[in-house]
Every structure is written in structure tokens, then in C-alpha cells.
Design a protein around this nucleic acid. Structure first.
Length: 373
RNA sequence: GGGGAGGUUCCCGAGCGGCCAAAGGGGGCAGACUGUAAAUCUGUUGGUUACACCUUCGAAGGUUCGAAUCCUUCUCUCCCCA
């Protein structure tokens, strides 16, 4: 089994840890947040700015890229790195989440999932093998297996069936990946909904297959924060410590802290970029909505000390103005802010872990973060 | 001075006898967004002792069972010609 993650420090009384993830396009310090660029571009910001902030691992999406521009175009360009001129690492999600979020347009079978394209309605079949093939064409530094993500509060029977499909697909993905040469990395995904027996079984089974990294899926799909924390902690205890752990789909500071406390190394989330476009930005005092009238006369930056353009060059008042005026720059500046904020937040976390004061950092950060809400 | 158009709830603007506390925008307020069908979506926006009542459509009178809607006078705004 490939060993791609080296733990450099573990906090003595929690599971929080720092490490280095070695990938084909460079080393990634962990714990790390990954910006989401579904279509091969992080919405509202230049690749070079994402890179300048310090990010060297972003997400793209197999389902979306498969539908558009399509495998042939990607092949012609020699993969997504060259096509999009992003020369650092790329992790691609498999489309498993789209099985969940576009549930009206799909049918899951043992062999794979039949989708109806959200773009033109055309029908497509995605199988675990095909998804690996597409990701090989994309050239993903980390590929994800096709999985079945489920909503909270479904019956145990349904959750079990979904997990069993996920399990079978995971094995098929792994076998196919190896058969194709086992290039770069393929991560397995733990499912099991919100049932302990299924979560445990899933964590153990996925760990056993031999993936170079393990993801926890099926969280942050509408459950409560408590459920999230409970199931995250419960699941993680069954995962091997020597491999990178990735919690899919989280991205608020409080959720990130919870994940890090449980020894998670990677996470991604659309919230930072989507909310930014909708006018919400991260601060140490919680998220604020820039469009509100109360910011009209504020000459303060969004976040004191932040190094992004919005914070070093403009005020909250101006940011509110450009949002109200519907200027494109508004979403772009806010996107840059949120990504800058999270990058520096991750740096603060890593430092706190290294200096053995992670729990104190977490506590004091959250006190302030929740104080205003 | 002559002719014309008009004053509607925070703003713009529909309504032109009952189904109007009054369409639709904007603005305000509140909320949502977490492996992106999202630079998006939802709710709310006269007052109360609220499934009912009260006050409101420039002002005052009037017609009518009933008026933002019809009539009279007043007032203000805008446009055209002198």
C-alpha cells in the first residue's frame, strides 16, 4: 500500500495532528482545507490568486467534467492540470455527491448509476470503473471512488443497502485502479448513514481494502451539528492512523475545528466560495452578511489583520456598496477573503497543534466565534 | 397667460366603483447556503387587545348600499405654447 502521508506532530491529549501529504504536484501540509473548483475553476477567483494564498490542492468534480467539457476534450489537452493551467494538486470527487444532490435525476443499480444530465437531460451511466477511468484522464492527484451518499433519517434498511452498494463499488474501484496501473492515488469513502453499526462496519471495510487515503462521506448532509460531531468521532476511531483522513464537505471554522480535533487531515467545502458570492464572509466573530444596511458607514475591514485585498484595500462599507450595486468584483473580493481567511485559519490551527495548545485554541476561538450570534 | 399630464403604502410604480391594506420592482429586516444545477433562494415589510377591527391612496366636501377608483372646490408637481 502506498504511504503518502507523514504525521509530523500529534497533540498529546487529543487526536489533532499535523502532517505532510506527498502528491505528484507537490507536498501539502495538513490539516488542510481544499477550495472547491467543480468545473476546473474555483468560482470567482483566479487560479494564480488561489495559489498565491498558499493553496496547492483544490477540488474538481468528475461528474461535472465528464458532462462538460467531456473526456475527449480533456484527453486532447492531456488532463485537467494542463487544460486549466493549474499546476498544483487536484483532487476530484467522483460524482457520488451528485448521486445524492441530483437524486431526482438518477437511478442506482448494482452495476452503477444512471444519470440524467442536469445540462441537457441526456442519459449516462456511471460505473465505479468508468469513474476511475475518467479520473485517470483528468489526471487527478487524488481520485475518489464512486459512492452512494444518503440523507439523514432514512430507515436502517435503506442505509444498509446503500452502504453495501458503496462497499461493492469501493472494491471494484480499487481493483480497476490497480488493474490500470495504480497511478497517483485513489481514496475510499466511508458511508453508513447515521447508524453506528453501519458506520463501524463501513470504516473497517473501507480501511481494509488498501486505499492510500480514507474519506468520511455522508456527513454535513443536513444532520445537526451534534450528530455530525458524534458520528465523526465515532467513525474516525476505526480508521488507521497511518493514512490521510478526509472529511468531505465541511468548511465552517467550527466544523473544521471539530474535524481537526478528531484527527482529520483534509476537508473541502463550497460554502466559503458560495457564501462569498452571496455576500457572507468569515470573521473571527462569526459569519457576517455584507449586504446589510448596518455596514453602510463602516470603515472597518471585514477582518482586522486579514491580508486579502478586500481587507487591506477596502472597508465593509465599500464591500456592502459593491454587493448592493451587483458589481462582479463584490463576489470576487469576498471569495478571496473567505479563502484567505480559511488558509490563515488552518495555519493558526497547525501552529496550535505543533505548540501543544490546540484545545485551548479551539476553546477560545469558538467562544469568540459564537459570542455575537 | 393658454393648453395638457399628474399627485397611491419608505421609494418607483400598477390599480380606475365592491374580490384593495392595495399587483410588480427597489429598498429594509430576518433566514438559509457545508464532497456547487446556486454571483442563489425563502420569508417578511400600515396599526392593533390580530382568522377581526382600526387608520391609509395630495386636502376638504359630495354622489353611492359601497370610493384609491365618480363629481366639486382647493392645493402642489411636471410638460408644451406664449
Amino acid at each position: 500500500m502506498k504511504k503518502i502521508h507523514r504525521v509530523t506532530h500529534t497533540h498529546p491529549s487529543t487526536n489533532a495532528r499535523t502532517g505532510i501529504l506527498s502528491l505528484d504536484h507537490g507536498e501539502v501540509v495538513t490539516p488542510a482545507f481544499m477550495p472547491v473548483g467543480t468545473n476546473g475553476t474555483v468560482k470567482g477567483i483566479y487560479h494564480e490568486h488561489v495559489r498565491e494564498m498558499g493553496y496547492n490542492l483544490i477540488l474538481a468534480n468528475t461528474y461535472h467534467l465528464y458532462l462538460r467539457p467531456g473526456v475527449e476534450v480533456l484527453k486532447e489537452f492531456g488532463g485537467l492540470h494542463r487544460f486549466s493551467n493549474w499546476n498544483d494538486n487536484i483532487l476530484t470527487d467522483s460524482g457520488g455527491f451528485q448521486v445524492f444532490s441530483l437524486s431526482g435525476l438518477r437511478k442506482i443499480r448494482e452495476e452503477g448509476v444512471v444519470f440524467q444530465s442536469h445540462i441537457d437531460g441526456s442519459r449516462h451511466m456511471l460505473t465505479p470503473e468508468k469513474v476511475v477511468d475518467v479520473q485517470n484522464v483528468i489526471g487527478s492527484d487524488i481520485m475518489m471512488v464512486l459512492d452512494v451518499c444518503t440523507a439523514p433519517e432514512i430507515p436502517h434498511r435503506e442505509a444498509k443497502t446503500a452502504w453495501e452498494t458503496t462497499r461493492s463499488w469501493a472494491q471494484r474501484s480499487y481493483d480497476h485502479w490497480m488493474r490500470e496501473g495504480g497511478e497517483r492515488n485513489l481514496f475510499g469513502i466511508v458511508q453508513g448513514n447515521f447508524y453506528q453499526d453501519l458506520r463501524k462496519e463501513s470504516a473497517l471495510a473501507i480501511s481494509e481494502i488498501g486505499f492510500p487515503g480514507i474519506a468520511i462521506g455522508g456527513l454535513s448532509v443536513g444532520e445537526t451539528a451534534q450528530q455530525f460531531a458524534d458520528y465523526l468521532a465515532y467513525t474516525t476511531q476505526f480508521l488507521p492512523a497511518d493514512r490521510p483522513r478526509y472529511v468531505m464537505g465541511i468548511g465552517t471554522p467550527d466544523y473544521i475545528l471539530e474535524a481537526v480535533a478528531n484527527g482529520i487531515d483534509l476537508f473541502d467545502c463550497v460554502l466559503a466560495t458560495r457564501s462569498a458570492r452571496n455576500g457572507s464572509v468569515f470573521t473571527d466573530d462569526g459569519m457576517i452578511q455584507l449586504k446589510k444596511a448596518k455596514h453602510a458607514y463602516s470603515q472597518e475591514p471585514i477582518q482586522e489583520g486579514c491580508t486579502c485585498r478586500a481587507c487591506t484595500q477596502y472597508s465593509r462599507g465599500y464591500m456592502r456598496h459593491v454587493f448592493k450595486a451587483n458589481e462582479m468584483i463584490a463576489g470576487m473580493l469576498a471569495t478571496e477573503h473567505n479563502l484567505t481567511y480559511l488558509h490563515s485559519f488552518m495555519h493558526r490551527i497547525r501552529t496550535a497543534i505543533t505548540e501543544n495548545r490546540f484545545p485551548e485554541f479551539k476553546k477560545s476561538f469558538l467562544e469568540r466565534y459564537y459570542a455575537s450570534s
